[in-house]
Amino acid sequence: MNSDKIVDAKGMACPMPIVKTKKSMDELRSGQVLEVHATDKGAKNDLTAWAKSTGHELLSTAEENGVYKFWIKKA
């Protein structure tokens, strides 16, 4: 999936993945897609909740070798 920006939050502990995601999302324009990579085991629930609460659209998720990947479209 194409993305306009990638956030590498691998190895980071709570709450850094969502803090970094938020900061990067602020730099995007509406409709652009942010890709997030994280290894925190809570990342899937955290980013799903974050997208829901902030109104952005979680397009897709994937997991490869312990790395969780997310594609979020800016509202």
Binding site: P15, V19, T21, K22, W50, T54
Partner: peptide, 11 residues
């Protein structure tokens, strides 16, 4: 502070 930072990231 973790909750505060998380909430701030939730705008």
């Amino acid at each position: 502070f973790i909750i505060a930072n998380g909430a701030a990231a939730f705008d």
